[in-house]
Computed example of a mutant assay.
Amino acid sequence: MFILACELYDLPNQKAHNIRDFVNIVVEEFGLKINEDIFIVSENEPKMVAAFSDGVIRIGCNAHYINNVIQHAFEFEESCCSGVQTFFSLVQDIITYVRQTHKQSSLSTCVQNYCKIRFSSVYIMLNTFVMVYNKLLSILNTTQSQNYLKINYVELEQLTRYLKYFHDVIDKLSCERTPTIHLVISYKQFLLNKSNDDDDDCLHLVQLKRYISKHPNDY
Rank of each mutant, 00 (worst) to 15 (best):
M1V: 08
M1F: 06
C6L: 09
L8D: 06
Y9I: 09
L11S: 02
L11M: 09
P12L: 08
P12Y: 04
H17Y: 11
H17G: 09
I19N: 11
D21K: 15
D21L: 15
E28P: 10
E29I: 02
I34Q: 02
N35I: 07
E36N: 13
I38L: 12
V41A: 12
V49H: 00
D54C: 06
V56E: 01
R58W: 05
R58P: 03
I59F: 04
C61Q: 01
N62Q: 07
N62W: 11
N62C: 09
H64M: 05
H64A: 00
N68Q: 10
N68F: 01
E75F: 03
E78D: 15
S79D: 01
C80G: 00
C80A: 07
C81T: 13
C81H: 09
F88L: 00
S89M: 12
S89I: 09
S89A: 14
V91T: 03
I95R: 05
Y97I: 02
V98K: 04
R99Q: 14
Q100W: 00
T101D: 04
K103R: 15
K103T: 06
S105G: 10
S108I: 08
C110F: 12
V111G: 02
Q112W: 04
I117A: 08
S121M: 09
V122Q: 03
V122Y: 03
V122A: 06
V122G: 02
Y123S: 06
Y123L: 07
N127T: 02
F129Y: 13
N134V: 03
L136T: 05
L137G: 07
L137H: 12
L140V: 01
T142H: 11
Q144R: 14
Q144K: 12
S145P: 06
Q146L: 09
L149Q: 13
L149H: 05
I151K: 06
N152G: 04
Y153V: 00
L156K: 04
L159W: 03
Y162N: 01
D168E: 11
D168V: 12
I170N: 02
K172W: 01
K172M: 07
L173K: 07
S174G: 15
S174Y: 00
C175S: 10
T178C: 02
T180G: 05
H182D: 12
H182R: 05
I185H: 10
Q189A: 03
F190M: 12
L192Y: 04
N193I: 04
K194T: 03
D198E: 14
D201A: 10
H204Y: 12
L205T: 11
Y211R: 11
I212M: 15
K214S: 13
K214Q: 14
D218Q: 10
D218E: 15
Y219E: 14
